[in-house]
Amino acid sequence: MRPDTIVMTLSTISFTTDYGLSDGFVAACHGTIARLAPRARIIDVTHLVPPGDVRRGAAVLAQTVPSLPLSVHLAVVDPGVGTARRPIAIAAADGGFLVGPDNGLLVPAAEALGGIEAAVHLTNRAWFAPEVSATFHGRDIFAPVAARLCSGAALPDAGEEIDDLVVLPAPHVERAPGRLVAEVLTVDHFGNVQLAATPDLLPDAPRELTVNGTPATRTNTFGDAPAGALVVFADSAGHLALAVNGGDAAARLSLAPGDRVTITS
C-alpha cells in the first residue's frame, strides 16, 4: 500500500508507557489528546512498564494490540528521549497506526497487526505542540501526532517516509534433544514467567520436567497441579510460561526478564 493512500478516521487511541501513576505525565498526554481529538476514546494498556525497559514495553504492547479495536497505538518507553533517536509513526496492515520512539518498541506490535505498511520519521513540527520539551516527547510530539492520526490526518503529512526502523535483538531460544533453553520475556503481576519459546518446542515432553533443576509439571492451567507446585504451561499469548499454583514463580526461581531458563525432560 502506498503511504499516500493511508488516510483513515479512527475512534480509539491505546496508550502504553513507563510513566507510572504517581505523577501527572499520563494526565498531561490525555489532556493533549482531548484538546486535539475530543471524541477519541483512550484505552490505557499500562503505565507501569519498568522505567526504560523497551523490551518489556514491546512485549506487552505486541501481546495486547490484537485484542484491541482498530486504533492508533501510542507507546512511550523512551530512555533516549531528546537524543538523535527518531520519533516515528507506523501504518500497520490492519489499518491502524503506531506512534512512538524508533527504539524497537513499536515493531513487534506492528508485526502482530499483520506487518508494516509504511513508516515515517515525524518531522512536521506543525503537528507538534507549540513548544517541545527535550524530555517530554510523549506530551509534545507523540500525543499530538496520535490525536491527528486518530482524527483522519494523512500519515505522509507527518514526516518523511523511512524503511530502516530499529529492531530489538531476537530473544535467545536454543533447542536440543531433551533440553530447551529460553530467555525470559516478561514477568507479570502474579510472578508468572513468560518465555520466548513457544509450546511447539516441547511437543513430546513428558508431564514431569525440570526447570533450572527444579521439578516441574507440564499442565494446561495452574489448578491442574497441587498448591505450591511449579508448572510449565502455554499462556494466553501463546508462549511457554512458568507459574507456581498459588505462588510466585519468578521469586521461587529468582528469575527476571533477560535471564535464561533451561527446561529438561
Rank of each mutant, 00 (worst) to 15 (best):
H73K: 01
A147I: 09
P144H: 05
S71N: 15
E131H: 10
P69C: 04
G82E: 05
P79T: 10
G114P: 04
E131V: 15
P79H: 08
T135F: 02
A134Y: 03
L149Y: 11
C150Y: 07
F136C: 07
A129C: 01
R125G: 01
A84M: 03
V99H: 10
P108M: 10
T135I: 07
L113S: 10
V72H: 08
R148W: 10
A112G: 12
D140W: 03
V76D: 13
R85N: 05
A75R: 04
V107A: 11
G80I: 05
E131S: 06
L98K: 04
S67W: 14
I141C: 03
N103E: 14
V107W: 01
R125C: 00
H73R: 06
L113T: 01
S133W: 04
L106Y: 10
P144E: 09
A129V: 00
L74G: 12
I88A: 13
L149M: 09
A146R: 06
G95L: 11
G80V: 05
V145H: 06
P79E: 01
A92D: 15
A126D: 15
R125T: 15
L122M: 11
V120M: 01
V120N: 13
V107H: 01
F136I: 01
E117T: 13
D102F: 11
D102M: 09
P69E: 08
V107Q: 07
N124I: 00
I88P: 13
P87I: 04
G138A: 01
V76M: 05
A93T: 15
S67C: 08
P79M: 00
S133Y: 00
A147E: 09
P69K: 10
A146C: 08
G114H: 02
A134T: 15
H121L: 05
W127S: 14
